[in-house]
Amino acid sequence: MKYLFLSPKDDNYTFYYSDLLKNKDVLWVNTSLNKKGLIGFLYGIHISKKLNKIINIPFKDIWIQNYKTKKIKDFIKTDEKCIVLVFRHSFFLFYRHSYEKWLKKINPNIKICFLFADIVDSYKKGFDINIAKNKFDALFSFDKEDSQKYGLVYYPHIVPFPANIEIQNVRGGQKYSIYFMGRAKKRLNLLVEIYKKLKQNGIKVLFEIAGAKESERTFFDENFQYIDFITYKEYLRRCSNADCLLEVMQSTSNTGYTTRVLEAISLNKKLISNNQDLINAPFYDKKMLSTFTSENDFNIEFLNKTNTPLHWNYDSYQYSADKLLSFLREYLYKKDK
C-alpha cells in the first residue's frame, strides 16, 4: 500500500504526521500555494469563477505542473492500491484543476480522501460540499455533528506528536496559568468575557487572537493580544509555558476531538473546553479536563489546583497515524473485497 500525502509545508498536520512521512511507502507533496504580486493577480484572473462562467479560459493546468511531476507519476503509476490523503486548502487542486482525473488516469486503483481539519463551516469560502463529494472517494470528519449533517465519514483522527520530539527545545519565556491562541471567528465576544472573568480572579492568562477584523477589535488589554501569525513551533513554546490550555469551540453543537485536545495530551497540560462531549471520551479525567458552558461556570478551582504528576488516561495507539491508516484502508477498499 502506498500513500500520497498532500499538505502545505507549514501546516501542523505535516508536523503531526512527520514520523509517517519518513516511510518509503509515503510521498509527501507540499501544496503551499504562495502566489503574490503580479503572478498572484494573473492567477486570480485565470481561475476566476465569474470570468470563467462567461468564457472558459484554457490552460489552467499551467498553475499545477509542480503537482504533475515524474516523481509523483512514478510513485503512483503501478496498479497497486494507493491512498491520497488531502489536508487543508490542498483541495484547490481538485476543485479548480480536477487533479483527481490526472491521478486516476495514472492509477485507476487510487483512492482519494479529504480529511477535514476543522468544521465544514470554516471551509465555506470556495468550498461546496456537493462538489467535494464528487471529487473525492470519501470525506472524513472528526466532528460527529458535521458527519451527520453533511453525510461525512466520522473518525476522531487525532494523532500523536512525532515520537522523538524534544519538548525542551520549545521552552523558555514567561509562564501562564492558562493560554489560548486561535482565530476570532464567531467566538470573539465569548473569549473577551472569559478573559475578563479569569483576570478578575487573579489568573495569569495569555490570549492571542488571529484573524480579527479592525472593526472587531474593541477590547484591548496587556495579555489579550491580536496577532497576524506565529509559527507552530512558537505556538508550542507558548503552550509548554502554560499550566492549562483553553479550547473554545466555534459552536457548542460541534463535537469531536480537535488538535487542541491532542496538544494538551501530548504536552501533558490541563485542558478547559466548552466541548461537553469530552466527558464521554475514553481519556477523560476530571483532574486533567474541565468543561464549561459560559464564562460564568468556569472552574477557577481547577486552574488553581496543582496536580503532581500530571497524567492523562490516554492510549496513544487508539489515536495514532497507524490506526487512522488502517481505518482508511478498510473503509476505502471495502467495496473491492
Rank of each mutant, 00 (worst) to 15 (best):
Phe59Trp: 07
Lys135Glu: 01
Asn313Gly: 07
Trp312Met: 01
Leu42Ala: 11
Leu4Arg: 04
Ile131Phe: 15
Ile129Val: 06
Tyr13Ile: 08
Leu246Cys: 09
Phe292Ser: 05
Tyr319Ile: 05
Phe87Gly: 00
Phe41Val: 14
Asp121Met: 03
Lys60Gln: 04
Asp146Glu: 13
Asn268Phe: 01
Lys135Val: 01
Leu198Pro: 03
Tyr314Ser: 13
Ala138Asn: 12
Thr252Leu: 11
Asp322Trp: 02
Lys213Asn: 06
Tyr317Ser: 07
Pro156Phe: 06
Ser98Lys: 11
Tyr317Asn: 13
Leu21Gln: 02
Cys244Phe: 10
Val192Ile: 15
Ile110Gly: 01
Ile194Arg: 03
Val192Trp: 11
Tyr123Arg: 04
Phe292Asn: 08
Lys335Phe: 08
Glu234Tyr: 04
Leu262Val: 13
Met1Ala: 08
Lys233His: 03
Lys77Thr: 10
Leu93Pro: 09
Val170Glu: 04
Ser98Met: 12
Leu324Met: 09
Trp102Leu: 05
Phe327Asn: 05
Asp315Pro: 03
His97Arg: 06
Lys270Glu: 11
Leu245Trp: 03
Thr69Asp: 03
Ile45Arg: 09
Tyr13Arg: 12
Tyr43Glu: 05
Lys124Pro: 06
Leu324Asn: 10
Leu303Arg: 10
Asn275Glu: 03
Phe327Gln: 02
Gln65His: 09
Asp74Gln: 12
Ser240Arg: 08
Asp336His: 14
Gly182Glu: 13
Ile54Gly: 00
Val84Trp: 01
Ile203Gly: 08
Val86Gly: 00
Tyr67Val: 02
Ile110Val: 14
Lys22Met: 08
Phe224Glu: 04
Tyr319Thr: 09
Lys334Ala: 12
